[in-house]
Design a protein around this nucleic acid. Structure first.
Lengths: 188, 188
DNA sequence: TTTTATCTATACCGTTCGGTATATTACGGG
DNA sequence: CCCGTAATATACCGAACGGTATAGATAAAA
């Protein structure tokens, strides 16, 4: 594993466990077994390190989900695929998913929200596209794609949050149930 | 308004908008128009300030919700009351609710999670009691009170999160729908 | 072999961090 | 009127902050 990757991995663990602002650059380089100039050579700044980390991980997220997130005429099946993709990614990247949630809920004027915002927007766009296309087949869904994508992602994150605390096991049955519950909310 | 309250209010705004770790003590006292020794006279430490803030606001939360959160034989009505209480509190205390969410999702080893943990636990206990009592009338709910309280609060927070971003209006109709959707998930 | 670009370490920068020693003010009770 | 306590300010502490100037190492290219 090259040095850059190793630094990113160390930073991820620290950020996820203590929070971005609570971790000092010195702590990161000590953990990674390097010195400051090395880090600044690769990433330019602490913020640059965070941006690089988010870029790497969110690319991985979209790779894992992208193929499922295409509307194929069956909204239920499609959402089940997306939910399954999210669950799998979150469980395979627990630290990053925790960090993403923390950044999402961080203050409006915080650097961390600014850093995660593009990835969040892209996730919403991806979901909205599904609901827009689905509304061609399901008229009563028309014009609500923003609301649907937000509540759907919120529901997913609720379950992932529970699973990250080991209060819940994310199996196929749960995916089925979560999506069913979500769709029932739409059609009733 | 006395000085102590004024300092707490200033700290709340700063913490909610920038994050606890990203706000310095100097910034707080400048905003409040005081000096450091005054703050340390009242609160002892930065952490003491956060604890005092959480204590004040979470007391206010339980005051707002407590009366609704008593099972009265009608689980649907009860949950509607709780949801309504949460929504009202969150909209009347937007900054604190945002801060609470941020602290909830902050890293496992972070000071902020430690500070909010008791309040979160109390909220869960309150909800679990409802579901335990309700399971006497509804046998199929038995033994799932932890899961139910977690997903119910998760659902509520999803909607509050959307409302705090002005993507949603939290009216009575939405409460009805959210609780109905939640109960449908339980009984199906 | 010399050159050039990449990578890394030593040592340091000014600033801000959370926190405090000391002194002064304000004020109510004896 | 003096005394004690609570409240506030000035000025400062050592440590940690994010970041960098400089130079030595390394290795591929010329």
């Amino acid at each position: 594993m090259d040095n850059k990757t190793h630094i990113l991995n160390c930073a991820l663990t620290l950020f996820a466990n203590k929070g971005y602002d609570a971790v000092g650059v010195q702590e990161i380089v000590d953990t990674a077994g390097i010195t400051k100039p090395t880090l600044y050579h690769y990433f330019g700044s602490k913020r640059g390190l965070l941006d690089a980390l988010v870029a790497r991980e969110s690319t991985s997220l979209f790779t894992a989900i992208g193929s499922s997130a295409v509307y194929n005429g069956n909204i239920l099946m499609c959402l089940r695929g997306v939910a399954s993709g999210y669950f799998k990614f979150a469980l395979n990247n627990k630290e990053y998913y925790r960090l993403q949630l923390a950044m999402w809920f961080s203050g409006k004027n915080s650097e961390t929200l600014e850093a995660i915002f593009p990835s969040l927007e892209q996730q919403h766009r991806m979901l909205e596209e599904i609901f827009i296309k689905a509304s061609i087949d399901h008229g009563n869904m028309k014009g609500r794609h923003k609301l649907y994508s937000a509540t759907f992602l919120g529901t997913i994150n609720t379950y992932i949050g529970l699973a990250l605390n080991s209060d819940l096991v994310l199996d196929d049955q749960l995916i089925y149930k979560a999506v069913h519950q979500f769709m029932h909310g739409i059609f009733s």
